[in-house]
Design a protein around this nucleic acid. Structure first.
Length: 220
DNA sequence: CTCCCGATAT
DNA sequence: ATATCAGGAG
């Protein structure tokens, strides 16, 4: 990312956007994936790659009834686990990763989900997005989760021009106040599912249109 | 860069 | 038919 300082005018625009998000969606933290324990959130998040959280929640409801512990996943038959998570897509990779991940949690982390970003990312099937979901939800560590919604909407709003999710993550950390990081993520996903959708965003009914670069550039 | 991949909306 | 979904790895 560019180290250039954010102009005062741009900083005011960003503040307006954040205020509008807070006004519209409130300050409440919530998780889009259902879970009871940290390791359940970890596996649910691995399953959520390129899959709706609604679908993941349907699958994990039965999955966590059947596999009640990390040990159950570590000892799981891979083909059977593939069938159990089939509808989330990428089921071969995900089943393999979850089993390998479960083993490492047991053998290297004493059955605990690590907090450190580098340790999290070293786990099978865990990238920065999954790692930051864990850090934000389990450890309340300020973190920005760059998923498909955060990427698309940050670009449309004009908060970044980058394509690389890691660059976007660092640019947003630089531009947004630390106490808003987790909230921004929650609000943007809510926003992205209802108004600022990937296909044909509902700009005419959008509460951010006066601050949005995308809206301005798509006005005739 | 490519591959992994089913379910749903458009 | 095609785009999209709380991406990650080789």
């Amino acid at each position: 990312m560019k180290k250039r300082k954010v102009s005062k005018k741009e900083q005011e625009r960003i503040d307006k956007i954040l205020q509008a998000f807070n006004r519209e969606y409130g300050l409440e933290y919530r998780c889009f994936l259902n879970y009871e324990t940290p390791w359940q959130l970890l596996f649910a998040t691995i399953l959520s790659a390129q899959c709706t959280d609604e679908r993941v929640n349907i699958v994990t409801k039965d999955l966590f009834q059947k596999y009640k512990s990390i040990e159950d996943f570590a000892q799981a038959d891979q083909l059977e686990l593939e069938r159990d998570i089939h509808s989330t897509g990428f089921f071969k990779n995900k089943a393999k990763n979850i089993i390998e991940c479960a083993k490492r949690l047991l053998y290297e982390y004493n059955g605990e989900v690590p907090k450190d970003i580098n340790e999290l990312v070293s786990l099978a099937g865990v990238g920065r997005k999954t790692a930051n979901v864990i850090r934000g939800n389990i450890y309340k560590e300020p973190s920005i989760v760059v998923d498909t919604h955060v990427k698309r909407i940050s670009q449309r709003l004009g908060l970044t021009k980058e394509e690389d999710p890691v660059k976007i993550e660092f640019e947003l950390m630089y531009k947004l106040p630390r106490e808003q990081w987790i909230l921004y993520n929650i609000q943007v996903i809510t926003f992205g599912r209802s108004i600022c959708t990937a296909r044909s965003p509902k700009c005419t009914e959008c509460f951010l249109r006066e601050y949005c670069k995308y809206y301005i550039n798509h006005q005739k």
